[in-house]
């Protein structure tokens, strides 16, 4: 049997985007694509519903849809968005980085100490904060990529180790004195009506979106997560890529650490603890939108903002701080459930 021309009848439309049916008889394929579209935008729809609800609800109508609240929600989440995006990289390779929160704290403490205790120049202190993140990321990456240790165990150990070291060094006290005014200004003031940290977040988002979506590096990272053995057999240097991913997540945790120094006017030693869990929630929530079933940058940002907006609304409506845990926990389970279901369906 040779060169059969692609028959018109019964042949499904070969297309990369879902499109309206051209003729009857291709309904099933179109239906499947439509379902995908529905799933793709479910979180966005939910987000809009949440915003509308709190904007119309009598108890939050005056407080929720205000510039002040939006600013507060966004700038309050800057550090979280950055560590969340960092977490995407190890997750894509099929691993976990559970040390992002601890690295964030380490970086904040290193930066603040260099500033207040040693009085080093501003640029150097920032570099010290970033370098501590790069360093821990590299250690994690080497242990996972070269020594082939389990990523959960390595980063969990690293997280506990760093938390211990930081507590030992700081005696559990926050470092809030002697912080440069330039730094705190960056963390608290606005540029053209927008909190300054947001600009940094946008830069990180754009760079990572570009790296993962529009470079061969991003392709290879996705391939490793999909099937490591097959990735090796299409010539991908797996250890190098896995190492890079952990260095990126460590570095972004370092960036977030320095940012928290700016936002809080110093290093708050308990701050990092609360970052890991919401970051995972947001990444998994994000995997249910844009490119369904895949961890992606824009989805993760939406995940953070969605949780933050919901928690803000609920808090304004009178709920207390426990709502944060409840909402994050429930959202993580639902997000993992949905992305797993999507995965199963794709596999059928």
């Amino acid at each position: 049997m040779t060169a059969r021309p692609e028959a018109g009848l019964g042949a499904a439309p070969r297309n990369d985007k879902p499109r309206r049916p051209l003729r009857s008889g291709i309904g099933q394929a179109t239906l499947r694509m439509l379902k995908l579209v529905g799933e793709r935008y479910a979180l966005i729809a939910l987000f809009i519903i949440v915003c509308l609800t709190f904007s119309l609800l009598p108890s939050t109508r005056t407080t929720f849809p205000t510039v002040l609240n939006i600013r507060q929600v966004l700038s309050g989440q800057s550090a979280l968005i950055i560590v969340t995006i960092g977490e995407i990289f190890p997750l894509l390779t099929g691993g976990f980085d559970l040390s992002i929160g601890a690295v964030c704290t380490l970086s904040a403490v290193a930066c603040a100490t260099a500033m207040s205790r040693f009085g080093l120049p501003l640029g150097v202190t920032i570099l010290i904060g970033l370098a501590s993140g790069v360093l821990i990321g590299a250690v994690n990456g080497l242990l996972i990529a070269r020594a082939k240790l389990n990523s959960i165990m390595v980063t969990l150990g690293m997280s506990t180790l760093l938390t211990g070291l930081v507590t030992w060094y700081t005696q559990g006290n926050d470092i809030l004195t002697g912080i440069s005014q330039t730094v705190t200004n960056f963390g608290t003031l606005l540029w053209i009506g927008i909190p300054r940290p947001i600009y940094l977040v946008v830069i990180v988002v754009v760079v990572c979106w570009y790296l993962l979506g529009h470079t061969p590096f991003g392709r290879r990272v996705h391939a490793i997560g999909s099937n490591a053995r097959a990735a090796h057999l299409v010539g991908i240097n797996i250890p190098a890529h896995v190492l890079t991913c952990y260095v990126i997540s460590g570095s972004l945790s370092g960036v977030a650490g320095v940012l928290t120094v700016a936002a809080n006017g110093g290093a708050v030693v308990t701050l990092g603890e609360g970052l890991l869990f919401p970051a995972l929630t947001a990444v998994f929530l994000g995997a249910t939108v844009i490119t369904v079933g895949r961890f992606n940058v824009l989805g993760a940002v939406l995940g953070v903002v969605f949780v933050a907006a919901s928690v803000s609304g609920l808090t304004l409506a009178g709920a207390s701080s426990w709502v944060n845990d409840i909402f994050n926990g429930a959202a993580l389970i639902i997000a993992v459930g949905v992305s797993t279901l999507v995965g199963w369906r794709t596999r059928r």
């Binding site: 990369d16 979506g213 529009h214 470079t215 061969p216 392709r219 290879r220 996705h222 391939a223 999909s226 099937n227 053995r229 097959a230 990735a231 057999l233 299409v234 010539g235 079933g293 995965g343 794709t346 596999r347």
Partner: peptide, 28 residues
């Protein structure tokens, strides 16, 4: 086990061994 990226698209599977070829002017 050794060749297919089952959860990835046909397109991604086709270009898995040639992705760098489409990277021009810093963009896929």
């Amino acid at each position: 086990g050794d060749a297919a990226f089952l959860d990835q698209s046909v397109q991604e599977n086709l270009s898995a061994a040639a992705a760098a070829r489409y990277f021009r002017r810093l963009w896929m």
